[in-house]
Structure formats: structure tokens, C-alpha cells
Design a protein around this nucleic acid. Structure first.
Lengths: 225, 225
DNA sequence: ACCCGTTCTCAGCCGGCGTTCAGGCCGGTG
DNA sequence: CACCGGCCTGAACGCCGGCTGAGAACGGGT
């Protein structure tokens, strides 16, 4: 099991490296965010342990960059302060777990093991649902061979729907994932954007990929309508 | 998303239930370990939130029992003290994450969402009774290969019946679980909805899955009629 | 400074859903 | 066989959730 440790505090890094190696892990250490991201993309690791406060590039950004690149290696975040917002933000940028300093070595290993046990699921670079295709990295979308122009909001809504194709998604769930984490405006905005999407990806093709489930939310047909 | 909350502190349980429901989760509460384990095995939940200190059967044992039975529903443990040993032990009995009291609601939801996000793989997630199938996540229902369109109320009624297939269910029991907790209207509503269901899932197929037990209530045949 | 695209708000329409009610039905009982 | 209480069902209706078009606020680009 190969672990990448991204941590600028040399004392802590050395201690963790020694401990993890003693426990049978192969450990590589990166001292700042940029180097960490580089190494993470270079070698294939089974898990990444990553500090949030880092010179060069924050842990959040490393994490977000990896996820955006389609890398779903389990990430355990180390946060200095135990502010709740940090935790929530860490999990939402795509971290799988976090640990607030100070922490004990035992706990770190237990969490790491739990992460590894779950494993990572590989994500394809391009999302598909029926004849709907969507390339998150390039920000482009197609229905069949026809490319569809979408505004940023429309795009991330469609991305969320495709990632969870087949599931019934409540409006609040959609709001939490597609809009800002703490959006307190009119939830009607979801209806508006669903409407816009339908007009772009359904109506011109005479099909209906996005279904309404009353009192529940919306569902994208995994077979493309 | 259906959550099972195993918590003996009635205040906390009520508060969490209210919050989670407002966030669009369906929540069932069990007040002790034994009941919790029973319900966990009975219904198929998307996640379980489980206190460690419980009357009857500790959270550890509930967790271990589920894992031993091959049930890998994501489990979030609530520990009273933040002793490190608790945390390590929790993760090692097979819990997926833990949270030490006192915790804030925001964090709980963030963690739950993170769990659900990755826990959604490799679960049957579909309820069955004979040739009746029902997918709570997608909000879809089938009899054999034919998909059945159901209104929200009809759907949750059928969901409840299938989860407790084989049991005789009184009208008041059905009212408590399918309708709002404090519904004070005409109980005849249950008869109305059972009738609608029969017309949709029984009549067109010439079978009868839902039986009436006079003076008692209704019963769904676990073999589909 | 102006234009344009995007995001978001608001109010009104519409249809479907939940609920009630009354009358008919059926099974059980004396 | 007649009565009675619980079950079934069709019709009616009010309400609420979802859809939409118009327009305000905002910001980036020229």
C-alpha cells in the first residue's frame, strides 16, 4: 500500500513517515502543495494524506485539482483548527475524510485503514447517460453528435444530474451540490434551470431525459430518455 | 435517502430527525441497540447513524453484527467522549466514520453526505416482494417488467407495505408511517389509497398482492400474490 | 460608458394530488 | 334472513407544487 504524504512540517512528516513505514506502508513525502499535486498525478497511490495549510498551494486546491482531473484516490485531510466550516469544506471539495490537529498516530492509521478498505472507485473522464455526453474537464456537452452550448450553471447542473443519473434528486440536494454551499435564495431557481436545460437538451430532440417527480425532485433517465 | 438513526436520547433523536427530514432525508428512529439492529436488517437504509452508548446492545456490537451478516450500509458512529481509543475501535469494528459529541448539525450532515456519496456502489438498493420491485432511490416501481407510475403518496405507501411484507399492518400503523406523524384527518384515506394501489398493481395483472384482514388492517403477500 | 450574457427573483397560471364524503357492498352474527 | 359495522369506490373540490415569461441585478468584455 503506497501512501503520499503532503505536509510541510518536517518534524511531523518524518515522524509519520517512520510510523507508517513501520506499519508496512510505502510512504512518499511532498513538502508543498504544488509538488504534492505533481507527485500525486505522477505515481499511482492508494491513498493521500494532505495538510490543508501548505505553502505554494492549499490542500483544498490540491484536492480540487485532483478531483477535477478525474483522480479519485482516497484523500485524508489534516486541518489545523477544528473549525466546522473547514471540515464541511474539506469534505465538499472531494476529500474522503479529515482529521483535526492535534491527532494521535493510532487514529490516523485507523482512519487510513478505513479509507483503504473502502477503496477508490475509478471515474471515467467523460460522463455519459444514453446519448448524452459531457466532458467536465473541457466543459463541453453533446446530445448524440450535436454539441450543446450551456452556461456555467446549466453545465454544472447537468453534470450533477448525469453523475447521479437514475437517482431521484431532491431540490435541496441539488441546491447543496450545484449552488453555493450556503445558498439561501428562492429554491425555485432549480425549477428555472431545469426548465432551461430541458429546452436545450430535450425539446430540440423530441425526447425527455429529465423527469419530474412531484414532491420529490428530478431524475435524469440513465438511458437518455 | 433513507436514514436509520439509533439513539436513546429522545431529545437529540427528535432534533436530528427534524433537521434531517427538513433536508430531505427519510428518517427512522430506533431507541435501543436491539431494535436498531432489527430495523437495520429489516429495511434497506442508505446510511445508519448510531450512538455507541446504547441500552440493550452497544453501538459497537450493532455495527459488528451487521458487518458479520454481510450488510455494508455506511455507518456513522456517535461517540460521547472523544477518547482516541473509541474512535480507533469504532473504525475497526467496521464503522465508516465517527463523530464525537458534542457535534454541530452542519458537520453531521456534511459527513453523512460524504458517506452517501461513496456508499452508493454495490448495494441492491431495491426492495422486492414476489414480482413486485421498488427502487426507493430512483422512485420507481415495477410489477414484473412493467413499470408502474405512482403518485408520491401511493409510492410511500407501497414502499412501507413492501418493507414490512408479510406483516399484518393496522390502519393506524400505516397512518403513522406513511402520513405525517400527526395526521388527524379521516382514516378512511388509507382505504382510498390501498384501493388505488390495487387498481394499479393488482387488477391489470389479475393477481392480488394486497390482502384485507377484517378488523385488523392490510397485508402484502411477500410472494407477490 | 455601453452592451450582452448570465443569474436570480417574482407572480400568475395550470394541473394533479390529497382529502373528504356519501352511498353501495360484503361478510359476519344472532 | 335481516341487521349492522366495517370496507370499497366514484365524484367533487380546494390547494399546493411545479412551470414559465418578464424583468431586475450583476459583471465582464469591448
Amino acid at each position: 500500500m503506497r501512501i503520499l504524504l503532503i505536509e510541510d512540517d518536517t518534524h511531523l512528516a518524518a515522524a509519520l513517515r517512520r510510523g507508517l513505514q513501520a506499519d508496512g506502508f510505502a510512504v512518499d513525502v511532498a513538502a508543498d502543495g504544488t509538488e504534492g499535486l505533481w507527485q500525486a498525478q505522477e505515481g499511482s497511490y492508494d491513498a493521500i494524506v494532505c495538510d490543508i495549510m501548505l505553502p505554494g498551494m492549499s490542500g483544498y486546491r490540491v484536492c480540487a485539482a485532483l478531483r477535477a482531473a478525474g483522480d479519485w484516490t482516497p484523500i485524508l485531510m489534516l486541518t489545523a483548527k477544528d473549525g466546522e466550516l473547514d471540515e464541511a469544506e474539506a469534505l465538499d471539495t472531494g476529500a474522503d475524510d479529515f482529521l483535526s490537529k492535534p491527532f494521535s498516530y493510532v487514529v490516523l492509521v485507523a482512519r487510513l485503514r478505513a479509507l483503504l478498505r473502502r477503496g477508490s472507485r475509478a471515474r471515467p473522464a467523460v460522463l455519459e447517460a444514453g446519448d448524452l455526453r459531457l466532458d467536465p474537464a473541457a466543459h463541453r456537452a453533446w446530445r448524440g453528435d450535436v454539441e450543446i452550448a450551456l452556461s456555467p450553471r446549466q453545465f454544472s447542473l447537468l453534470e450533477f444530474l448525469i453523475r447521479r443519473a437514475g437517482d431521484a434528486l431532491s431540490k435541496s440536494e441539488i441546491l447543496d451540490h450545484v449552488w453555493d454551499f450556503a445558498f439561501d435564495g428562492d429554491p425555485n431557481i432549480v425549477e428555472v434551470y431545469v426548465g432551461q436545460l430541458r429546452r436545450k437538451i430535450d425539446e430540440p430532440f423530441g425526447r425527455s431525459a429529465i423527469g419530474t417527480i412531484r414532491l420529490v425532485g428530478y431524475r435524469l433517465d440513465p438511458d437518455g430518455g
